[in-house]
Amino acid sequence: MRVLRDLFKDYRFAFSFTILCLLLILALLSAFSPYDPTFWWHATRDLRPSWTHFLGTNSKGQDVFWQATYAVRNSLIISVIAGTVSRVIAILVGMIAGYRGRLTDRVLMFVSDSFLVMPLFLIIVLLAMLVREHMNLVNLGLLLAFFGWAWDARVIRSQILSLREREFTQTAILSGTKTMRLVMKEYLPFATPLIFSTLINNMAWAIGMEITLAILGLSNMDIPTLGTMLQWAISYQALLLGWWWWLLTPIVLAIFLFVALYWLSVSISEYLDPRTRIQRVGAR
């Protein structure tokens, strides 16, 4: 597609897109894993990387490589759920508050601001502790989504407020367009780069939160994610005992994931920025 071709000219996009594709392949490989990730002792423990076990084994007798495929998959699932659900909430709240104004705006912004000033981390920790048994991937994703929409709702709302004053709003009204359709068709294209970059940032934040919760021991330790892998490695003293393959795998994967997500968000939002988009439109 022409869009992809244009995007690839940006080295940041090319790099991050490739990395993410690789990580996605890694995640998909988990479907072919010969080992069940929740079982222990299917291999000799603490083996160095070799041809039979590409990244060695950990102290629980699991193959690190195949664990990692599951870890990447699960972390991505959590972050995608968190990111998309929180976007949907942020868009709805931001657009309704921005266009309606007055009382609706005040109420929605009050709610949103409350979420902003709450000590999110503590509350998430508290809730995580309470529902630890029921904490599967989806629930964790939803929990993070519930706390990740407030900032972006306000940003989207400001965007809508300024767009409302522009003349093409009047043109659309005079063309007979109803409110919802107006907001969707006229304003959304302006908000898209915002939404996209915050989506990706939100995903990165979700992964970070997931890792943090895991290290605190608050998530379900049986489900392999980047965080839980790291947590097991730490609790088994992998650093002191020199089992670098077990420790470094989740760390390196997480670093790649963060950098890739960041560069992806920056390059795409630059591409989608209305100002450069308008320039490009004429040069077609």
């Binding site: 522009r166 003349e167 093409f168 009047q170 043109t171 068709k185 006229e186 988009r277």
Partner: peptide
């Protein structure tokens, strides 16, 4: 309106 470039949404 006065400014034709503002009358229409530049992205549509």
């Amino acid at each position: 309106f006065q400014n034709p470039f503002e009358t229409f949404n530049p992205l549509r």
